[in-house]
Amino acid sequence: MDWLECGVLFTVALIATIALTPLAKRLAVRLDAIDYPSSRRVNNRPIPRLGGAAILGGLFVCLLVLFVGMRWAGWRTPFVSYPGMPINYLVMLAGVLFMFAVGFVDDVISLRPRIKFAGQVVAATIVAASGLLLSSIHNPFGPGFIEFGWLAYPLTIFYLVAFANIINLIDGLDGLAAGICAISASTIFIFAIITHRYDAAVFSIALAGACIGFLRYNFHPASIFMGDSGALTLGFALGIVSLMAIARSALFMSLLVPVLAAGIPVLDTAFAIIRRVRAHKPIDAADKGHIHHRLLQAGFSQRKTVLIMWGWTLILALCGIFITETTGVMRIPFMLIILGITIYMVVKLRLLDPVLLHHYHPRGRKDYLPDQLASRRAEEERARQENGDARR
């Protein structure tokens, strides 16, 4: 694949997604897949939420153009198997379709968390069965690779399900998840070109085009949300293309590229899990302690919050590329940039407050967290009002 062909695929995915989004909006209205305003949402008016259908449609139109180009324009096929890891791309695409179906059904009828999680595991299992596996990593202490053997299957399933969910969790503001995915996919595209992983390059540039096309309708004020059909599919696809890009890589540091490209969702998910465990809440419980919520609470508008998080993602992603492409002491400045920005944002937004507050608050209660206390007081007030109404 050359730059012209990649440019064509990017443009096709972008235009197709823009063209299909109004159709996805109409479908969402017909199926009543609508995000209505509530205390846990930031939208103040009903918004359709089946944008994932347009994103998936854009990706498949792009693949159709790719096959036409391979057959009639003499494009070189990007679908090659790496030594020791043959991939059945049709089975892999079936896994993506299954993940989309899980998200689509959840957008329409709201699946139970366990059923949705089981569907995600099935989708990841299909991809693992296609031959795309996190089967080994380059040995950082010597020559050769560290082989995972049968553990490659559960590791791959965990990796893909984790990627799907971290994007789903970050999808809380207009354009946030789509922009982060576009930046992450573009980063993986650059890395894939550098390492000659052309299948990863094709899928990632198509993914970037679809995300940017969707932003035409999804940036604030959004007229459509991507929903779980979009967030789960995008996260899942990012996990897949990142595995393609790093598979059998001779660089141990290449593992940093997908992790840093999705660094903010990873960080946000980690803090969300810690926060909910400390609050004795289910891990999948909704709250308003995410990074974007903290930025909104700090007084930033939706647009500024999204732009800040896009910029943060871009810096992490570029540093990841530079770290993999440099050696020795040349990596230190980029590592310091990553560490410095992350520590500054964590401290500035007080992301660790729910974890650390019980250690130093004078009341000394482990369950004394401002958000919890406010929620508890609100519940007590509602209970008193309901009891009063019942007595009357």
Rank of each mutant, 00 (worst) to 15 (best):
F300G: 00
D174S: 07
V105C: 00
A73M: 09
N387T: 11
E379H: 12
I194H: 13
L260T: 15
Y368A: 08
A182P: 13
A19I: 12
T195G: 01
P113L: 04
R275D: 04
M92W: 00
A250W: 02
R382Y: 06
G119P: 14
R350S: 13
D107Y: 05
G52S: 06
S81Q: 07
A390T: 11
I34E: 05
G263C: 11
L373T: 13
L351F: 00
L215C: 07
R45K: 15
I188S: 03
L66H: 11
L97D: 01
L256C: 15
F163Y: 11
V257Y: 12
L351H: 00
V347F: 13
T156Q: 03
V161W: 04
N88L: 11
K116F: 09
D32K: 15
N387G: 04
K25Y: 00
R49T: 04
E386W: 05
G289K: 08
A374P: 00
A272Q: 01
A94M: 12
T21C: 06
F219Q: 08
V241F: 02
I166G: 03
R391T: 11
A185C: 09
I183P: 10
F252I: 02
M345A: 13
V121Y: 09
R294Y: 13
T342Y: 10
G103E: 02
V61R: 00
Y360T: 07
S223G: 09
V306T: 13
C6V: 05
I180W: 08
I321H: 08
D171V: 10
L4A: 06
G388T: 05
L97Y: 07
A200W: 01
I332F: 06
K288Y: 09
F300E: 01
A272T: 05
L132M: 00
L295P: 14
M253D: 13
R377S: 10
A118V: 08
R350T: 12
A272H: 01
A245G: 03
R384I: 10
L255F: 07
L352M: 13
L132Q: 00
P154L: 07
G7A: 14
G209C: 10
D284Q: 01
H361G: 00
A231C: 03
F214C: 08
C211F: 06
F300A: 00
Y153T: 10
F67N: 11
A162P: 07
A192E: 02
A247F: 00
L4S: 08
D106Y: 14
R41W: 08
G95E: 05
E380R: 12
F271G: 01
A286F: 09
G328W: 01
I212M: 14
F191T: 01
L215V: 06
D2W: 07
I15T: 09
L256E: 12
D32Q: 13
D174P: 09
D371K: 03
P113T: 04
D2N: 15
A279H: 11
A53K: 03
F100H: 11
E325G: 04
A210T: 09
I188D: 04
G263R: 11
C181A: 13
G213Q: 13
A210S: 14
A250M: 06
L215S: 03
L255Q: 09
E380M: 12
H290R: 12
A177V: 03
A270V: 14
A237S: 15
